[in-house]
Structures are given as C-alpha cells and as structure tokens.
Amino acid sequence: MIFSLVITGAPYSTQCADTALRFARSVLQQGHTLHRVFFYADGVHSGSALAAPPQDEFNIPQAWAELAHEHQLDLVVCIAAAVRRGVLDSNEARRYEKDGHNLASDFTLSGLGQLVEAGIVSDRVVTFGA
C-alpha cells in the first residue's frame, strides 16, 4: 500500500512528530511505500537544522534525515507555512534578505500542491496533528 503522512504539530511541543516517525518506520518495515511526508503548519519546525535538543532526547529533524537517507524519502515542508515561521532554505533567505537559512538538507520547501498530489497518488494519507 502507498502511504503519505501529513504532520501539522510542532516537534517537542506535541507528541505527534515522534508518533509520525514511529509510524513511518512501521510503514516501511512492513514493506509498504511511503510516497511523501508533508510538514504543514507548526510541523515545519521538524525541518529545522538548528534544532539542538539535549543529548538524551530524541533529535527529530535528524531522525527524519536518517530515515530519508535509508529509504530515499521525499520530505516536503510547506513553503508558505515555513517562511512565516522562519524555516528558510538558501533561496528563500536570499529572497527575503535574511542573514541565514536553516532548512535541514534532506528536506525541500514546496507548495500545497505536493500535499494534494500525495493524496491523489497514495492509498492512505495519515495526518498527525497536535
């Protein structure tokens, strides 16, 4: 079965970012396809390369990056939601004349069309909200 995930809750504030990661691992372990993970609303903070949690806590952006490497996942962060909240890639940093950018390298910024396309292609879209 083809799955896509939508994550709308912030990492560390809500449990949904952890739960989504565990769900993603289970989907892959059971031999299903994970077409896309779409980060929306406060979920965009899961794509920040600047997250620096204490060492005895789960590093959510890094965990996604590792999973993405292992399974060639498409991690898409909603561009409109991200730039509002200060999650920028180098292009957006240049566009908005900001001093730095912080989108982790395994994530891409794109539009809501990527969410809808995921819905069209996938058998199941599972949302992890706050």
Binding site: T8, Y40, A41, A80, A81, G111, L112, G113, L115, V116, E117, G119, I120
Partner: peptide, 15 residues
Amino acid sequence: RDALDVALTVSVFEQ
C-alpha cells in the same frame, strides 16, 4: 486558514 488553503489547492487539482 490552513484547511481553507488546502481546500483551494485540492480544487485547483480538480479533485
């Protein structure tokens, strides 16, 4: 607002 933005995008994709 997030829901409405998704709704309009779904509509653009003619679903």
